[in-house]
Nucleic acid binder design. Structure first.
Lengths: 107, 107
DNA sequence: GGGCAATTTCTACATTGTAGAATCCACTAT
DNA sequence: ATAGTGGATTCTACAATGTAGAAATTGCCC
C-alpha cells in the first residue's frame, strides 16, 4: 500500500526528526533537533511545508496537544515508517561496496 | 571548499552509479546499474539532466571516450566525493539510535 | 547511402526544498 | 481590559531537483 514515490532528503530528515523527538514532536522542536544533529540552519517554513506534505501523503499525523498552548504535535504513521525503511534499504544497497572513508581519494 | 548545498536523493544515486560502474560510466550504463540495484525504472532523461547538473556544480566531469562510439563517460571529482561523504555523514547521525528493523512497529 | 541499434540531447512540467514575513495564541503586568 | 511579549504556526512566493519521453545524433553494417 505504500506509495511508490521515493522520499526527498528533507522529507526523510523531518520524519527522522519527528521520531527522534518523540512525544515532543511539534514543529519548532523538530526544527531544533534537526539543527542540533545536522549542524545546519533549518528554516521553520521548510519544516512545516514538509510536515504538511508528509501528512497529505499519509506518512504522519498531527493533533493539537490539548492544554499545550498552540502546539501541533506530529507522529509518524505505519506507512511513513515503511517508506522510511524502504528508502534506507535502497540506499544501503547502492552504497554497499563503496568505502566512504576512501571517497576522498577519488580526487 | 565544497558547496554547502546538500545533494538531492537522485543526485546521490547517480553519483553512486557513476562510481559503481567505474570505467564504463556513461549515461545508459549508469541507468542500467541504477535500475539493477534499486529495482526501479529510471528514465534516461532523468539521468542526463542530473549528470549535467552535477557537472555544472563541479562534482563530476565528462569526456567523449575516443573510439567508443558516441559515448560520453563520467567520473566523480574530488568535490563530488567530498559532498557525497558529507551527505552520508549527516544522514548517519540522524539515523543513529533508530533501529530500522523496528520501524514497522511504529504503526 | 540507407537502415539500424545504441546513445545522447532537448523540452516541458511536477514535485520538493527554502526563506521569511505575517499571523495566532496564551500569559502577564499594568 | 488590554498592550506587550515569547513561542508557535501559517502563508506566500520562488528556487532547485526530479521525471518522462520524443527528437536528434552517432557509428556501423549491409
Amino acid at each position: 500500500m505504500s506509495d511508490d514515490a521515493p522520499l526527498g532528503v528533507f522529507e526523510e530528515q523531518v520524519m527522522l526528526g519527528v521520531i527522534r523527538t518523540g512525544e515532543e514532536a511539534y514543529g519548532m522542536n523538530v526544527r531544533r533537533e534537526l539543527e542540533r544533529v545536522t549542524g545546519r540552519e533549518v528554516s521553520i517554513g521548510a519544516v512545516y511545508a514538509t510536515l504538511d506534505r508528509l501528512e497529505a501523503k499519509g506518512y504522519v499525523t498531527s493533533r493539537r496537544a490539548p492544554g499545550s498552548g498552540s502546539r501541533r504535535t506530529f507522529a509518524v504513521l505505519g506507512a511513513g515508517a515503511q517508506v522510511l525503511a524502504e528508502t534506507r534499504a535502497i540506499r544501503d544497497r547502492l552504497w554497499r561496496g563503496i568505502d566512504a572513508a576512501r571517497l576522498p581519494e577519488l580526487a
